[in-house]
Amino acid sequence: MGMSVGAGGGGRGGRGHRRRGRHHAMISEINVTPMVDVMLVLLIIFMVAAPLLTVGVPIDLPETKAKAMNADTQPITITIDGTGKIFLQETEIPQEELVAKLQAISKTGYEERLFIRGDRTTNYGAAMEVMGLIQDAGYKNIGLLSLPKQDQ
């Protein structure tokens, strides 16, 4: 059960590990191509994802001279688009289910701050109907959102 070792002396070319006359210099350059590839992929991912991060239903808010409200917490947003559809945050819901869904997601009960966003073309009666429905349910902190008026 013995092992035999060849007479070559160690495996590399039969002459040992030393190489005479060849000096390999270390490559001191940094290959930045993989880093650039990763950065470009991340840039593309963020460019695609950024529009998805905007909150809310796209509507054309009216402009007013009202000052911005001081907001410590994120309010619940109810949106009425130009066609009269109602959205709770970003989810479209029927008007009959609005109060039940509000009660389900309200953290502070009837003291929850609610913002109503209405498109510029929204029927005034539809917006007031939604606001009255919410107020009849017991919510008192209701605000209407608008854009600041641009001086021309």
Rank of each mutant, 00 (worst) to 15 (best):
I44S: 12
A71V: 14
Y124H: 06
S28T: 09
A104I: 06
M47W: 12
R120M: 11
I93R: 01
V5A: 05
S146I: 10
G9S: 11
P75Y: 04
V32S: 03
V99T: 07
G143P: 00
L114C: 07
V5S: 06
E63R: 05
D136Q: 15
L102M: 11
V57C: 01
D60S: 13
S4R: 12
G132Y: 07
T122G: 14
L144T: 04
T108H: 11
V130Q: 01
R19Q: 09
G14V: 09
R18D: 01
G16E: 03
K140W: 04
L43A: 15
N141K: 14
T108A: 14
D136E: 15
I27N: 15
T79F: 02
D37Q: 14
S106E: 13
I45C: 08
M131R: 08
E96M: 04
E63S: 12
R113Q: 05
I27K: 12
R19F: 05
V99L: 05
M1E: 12
M1V: 11
T122P: 12
P94S: 15
G132Q: 11
E63N: 03
G125T: 08
K65N: 11
V57E: 00
Q74A: 11
M69C: 10
K65Y: 04
N31R: 11
Q74W: 02
A104G: 02
G56D: 04
M128S: 02
G21M: 06
Y110P: 02
P75N: 07
I59R: 11
A137C: 03
L133Q: 14
D81P: 05
A68I: 09
P94D: 13
I27Q: 13
I93Q: 05
A49Q: 13
G8N: 06
D81K: 02
L43T: 15
L98M: 08
I59L: 14
A7W: 02
E92W: 03
K107C: 01
L40V: 10
T33E: 06
I44R: 03
T64Q: 09
P62F: 01
L52R: 15
E90R: 10
G56R: 04
D81W: 04
D151E: 12
D72P: 05
R20N: 10
T122K: 07
N31E: 14
A137I: 06
M35V: 14
A126M: 13
V41N: 08
E112M: 02
L145S: 07
E97K: 04
G10P: 01
K85Y: 13
E92V: 08
